[in-house]
């Protein structure tokens, strides 16, 4: 009896896993991706709550050792991606895996599959946007490659915009590493957060050359991709605002005046404070 039941049982158990991946509906595949992402998010929330409850540094250190490893969660999506790497669910999964994988081989494989199956898709613009605020060599190369290979002008505009953000972020990160504005503990924590690879890359950057190339890229966006939608406005508006900041709000420039009303409705100006050192603080509680 056993010899007959066992293969049957195995086959029954495997069907939902292997068979289902091929036939599962696109909605279910998307739900699957969302579910794995949520598992990681929940684990991170739980950790954060524990961290806040920790009484001292020693306890906090213990809690941080339990930090969920994003790479393990990313690996859970390989069966889904392998079954069909070409649909939207796979694109979403790959973009996420590329971002959070801690295993270099996984990261590379996810990046390659994303290019192989999705570089012509318009959705790759969202992937560029999701990488724009995490400066690293890999992310920069990714958006540069998208800008080069995409057949869509709008995507090229967004990839170029992401590149400007990444270069800006890299400059700021490089400045804060070398600027001496952090305490030694803050510095150590920040360097750990960046990781050895990114840290070495940041230290090698040529700040002047990058600032110049950002300006050129912004001018390119303002002329070639001005009408591409971005957030609440267009890339043209965003690029112009950034160029204004670059040219008029840099260290050494005279601050543009501000005229407005205070909490009591009384009008005043920033220039009323000429003759004093001013700390201008954009703040809010919302």
């Amino acid at each position: 009896m056993r010899t007959i039941i066992t293969p049957l049982l195995v086959a029954t158990l495997l069907t939902p896993i292997l068979g289902a991946q091929q036939q599962i509906s696109p909605d279910d595949r998307k739900a699957h991706v969302a579910c794995v992402k949520k598992e990681l998010a929940d684990a991170e929330t739980a950790l954060f709550e524990k961290y806040q409850k920790a009484k001292d540094d020693a306890e906090r250190e213990v809690v941080m050792k339990e930090r969920p490893d994003g790479g393990t969660f990313a690996k859970k999506l390989w069966p889904l991606v392998t079954a069909n790497p070409a649909d939207d669910a796979a694109a979403e999964a790959l973009a996420w895996m590329m971002r959070i994988s801690e295993d270099a081989a996984d990261k590379k494989k996810a990046t390659e599959l994303l290019f192989q199956h999705h570089v012509k898709s318009e959705a790759i613009a969202d992937v560029c946007a999701s990488l724009a605020y995490q400066p690293s060599k890999a992310n920069l190369e990714f958006v540069e490659r998208v800008a080069k290979e995409t057949p869509h002008d709008a995507v090229r505009g967004q990839a170029t915009w992401a590149k400007v953000q990444l270069l800006g972020g890299a400059l700021r990160a490089a400045e804060s590493i070398t600027g001496g504005a952090m305490t030694p503990e803050q510095q150590k924590g920040y360097e750990e957060y960046l990781g050895a690879g990114t840290l070495a890359w940041l230290k090698m950057l040529d700040g002047k050359a990058i600032a110049a190339s950002r300006e050129t890229l912004l001018e390119e966006i303002a002329t070639k991709f001005a009408d591409v939608k971005a957030g609440h406005g267009t890339l043209g508006e965003a690029a112009k605002a950034e160029l204004f900041e670059l040219r008029n709000l840099a260290i050494g420039k005279a601050a543009p005046d501000i005229v407005g009303k205070d909490a009591d409705g009384v009008q005043f100006k920033l220039s009323d404070y000429r003759g004093k050192v001013v700390l201008l603080d954009f703040w809010g509680e919302w």
């Binding site: 404070y273 050192v277 700390l279 809010g284 509680e285």
Partner: peptide, 10 residues
């Protein structure tokens, strides 16, 4: 001769 000036977003 110092002033803190805010720009509030609430």
């Amino acid at each position: 001769p110092f002033a803190l000036v805010g720009v509030n977003s609430d």
